[in-house]
Simulated assay, not measured.
Amino acid sequence: MDHLTKMEEMLDQANLQIKNGKYEDASNILEKMIEIDPDFGKTYNHLGYLYEVKFKEFEKGETLYKLCLEKSPMYPAIYYNYAVLLSTLNKYDELKELLDTAINIPGIRKSTIFNEYAIMYEQQGKLEEAIEHYKKAGRNSIDKSVVDRAKSSIERCKSKKDLF
Rank of each mutant, 00 (worst) to 15 (best):
Y117I: 07
T101H: 12
R149M: 14
T63E: 14
G48D: 01
E59Q: 14
F114V: 03
I103E: 00
I142T: 15
A102C: 05
Y65E: 02
K71G: 01
L50P: 02
L16D: 11
N81E: 09
E116S: 08
F114Y: 15
D37E: 06
D12R: 11
S159Q: 11
M10Q: 09
I103M: 01
T101C: 09
A26D: 04
Q17F: 13
K32S: 12
Y75T: 03
R109V: 11
F40K: 04
F164A: 05
L85C: 03
R139S: 14
A83E: 00
K160V: 15
V147H: 07
D25K: 14
M33Q: 05
L50F: 05
K19S: 15
I36V: 15
Y121R: 01
D37W: 06
L64P: 01
L64C: 07
Y75G: 00
G41N: 05
P106T: 06
D93A: 13
C157S: 04
Y82A: 00
I119F: 12
K161R: 00
L86P: 00
F164H: 11
D100E: 14
M120A: 04
L99R: 00
K42H: 10
K135R: 09
E31P: 12
G125M: 05
F40W: 09
K19A: 15
G61S: 07
I18N: 03
Q124A: 04
D12A: 15
L69N: 00
K136L: 15
I36H: 08
T88E: 13
G48W: 01
L69G: 02
I34F: 10
M33A: 01
R139G: 12
L4D: 11
L50Y: 04
A130G: 08
K60G: 08
T5W: 10
K42P: 09
F58V: 09
T5C: 10
V147G: 04
Q17M: 15
P38K: 12
V84L: 15
I36S: 08
K71I: 07
L86H: 02
Y92S: 01
K91A: 01
M120P: 10
L85A: 02
I113Y: 02
I29W: 03
C68G: 01
K151R: 14
P38R: 08
H133C: 06
C157Y: 02
I34W: 04
N28P: 01
F40S: 07
C68P: 05
Q123F: 11
K151T: 12
A83P: 10
T5R: 13
L50H: 05
Y121H: 09
I105H: 06
